[in-house]
Amino acid sequence: MSNRNSKYEPLQNFLKFQKTKSIKMTFFEVEDILGFTLPKSAYEHEAWWDKSDSHTQSFAWKNAHFIAKPNLKEKKVEFVKHIED
């Protein structure tokens, strides 16, 4: 995949080194890794966390072989290891 995710590369690198099959994080923890505040849409729309190829941010977790499962009410996300067939 292309380097379209350079802004989100710190998250990709963090996830690549996780030894567990899933990791739960608060949005604040994700922001801490990234070094910037997530956009308002990340807090308001589950679609922001989709694995769509049209979402630049999704390349970060897709390239690390994870999918994102957000909980907007709690402002948390679970990244789950996903190896495509």
Rank of each mutant, 00 (worst) to 15 (best):
R4E: 14
N5S: 07
S6D: 10
K7L: 00
Y8R: 12
Y8K: 12
Y8C: 11
P10Q: 05
P10G: 02
N13P: 06
F14R: 11
L15M: 06
L15N: 00
Q18F: 08
K19L: 00
T20Q: 06
K21N: 13
I23C: 13
K24D: 05
K24L: 07
K24V: 03
M25K: 08
M25F: 05
T26D: 05
T26Q: 01
T26I: 06
V30T: 02
E31C: 02
E31Q: 15
I33M: 02
L34I: 00
L34T: 08
G35F: 08
F36C: 05
T37A: 05
T37V: 11
L38M: 03
P39Q: 04
K40R: 13
S41D: 10
S41F: 09
S41I: 15
A42N: 01
Y43L: 00
E44Y: 04
E44T: 09
E44H: 03
E44Q: 07
E46V: 09
A47K: 05
A47V: 14
W48V: 09
W48S: 13
W49S: 11
W49N: 08
W49D: 01
D50L: 01
D50G: 06
D50M: 09
K51Y: 02
K51R: 10
K51I: 00
S54A: 09
H55R: 15
H55P: 06
H55T: 12
T56W: 15
Q57Y: 04
F59C: 08
F59T: 04
A60S: 14
A60L: 07
A64T: 06
A64R: 11
H65Q: 04
H65G: 00
F66R: 02
I67T: 06
A68F: 02
K69R: 15
N71P: 14
N71F: 10
N71C: 15
N71S: 15
L72K: 12
L72R: 07
K73Y: 07
K76C: 00
K76F: 00
F79A: 14
F79H: 14
V80I: 15
V80A: 11
K81N: 10
K81W: 12
H82V: 04
H82G: 02
D85H: 00
D85R: 10
